[in-house]
Amino acid sequence: MIEMKSVNKWYGKTFQVLKDCSLSVAKGEVIVVCGPSGSGKSTLIKTVNGLEPINSGEITVAGTSITAKSTNLDRMRSKIGMVFQNFELFPHMNVTENIKLGQIKVLGRRPAEAETKALALLDRVGLAEQASKYPSQLSGGQQQRVAIARGLAMEPMAMLFDEPTSALDPEMINEVLDVMVGLAKDGMTMMVVTHEMGFARKVADRVVFMDHGEIVEDATSTDFFGSPRSERAQEFLSKILNH
């Protein structure tokens, strides 16, 4: 589903954020990308839908190149859902409008149809009651669940999550993770940047460990948590799991 081959990216001329990153995500697979801050994991996930352009390498999603000039990138993005660390709901629209906008403007659905879809998705993420509220009236966890519904409304073939729980208060993390676990069980292809190792252990098929812009380890979650091969991954795990 998602193929990355030798992806390189520089910020300016001197700083290389992504070093020869190759990765593939099969249909229905859940991949967790972890690593210390500044390791390039957020940048990596944003290259998948072309929000971050790359300098060299190749990325294809469902066989379509993200990097080729001939690709209609807007069209491709509409087929790849993305959830951000800071939710990024549109504050001037209510929850339902947030979920309807892309359906109407990008997919050309009729407003009534988009509304039905939006309400069904809100129900799925457990927020049917909040349909007419504005993002500022919701808690962080609720906002992030709306953001997931907004992504799902486009009926994407894969979902990207960029640290979806990092900006949340601890008591709200689980409500978001529950929705994500549900998605994974339904067979959604997911690439998740997160520090939630519980989530990784429970639902990830593979864990990718990044450091200094490199993919240091790419292993099944059992192998990764059981016996990470690289020293850097061992060190990272001992820091993050030791409490």
Partner: peptide
């Protein structure tokens, strides 16, 4: 991030500016 979120759902640059 607002522009990024708008682009991520497939809106064009022009649509993102206009609606978001």
């Amino acid at each position: 991030g607002q522009l990024a979120a708008a682009r991520a759902i497939g809106l064009t640059y022009g649509q993102s500016m206009r609606y978001i």
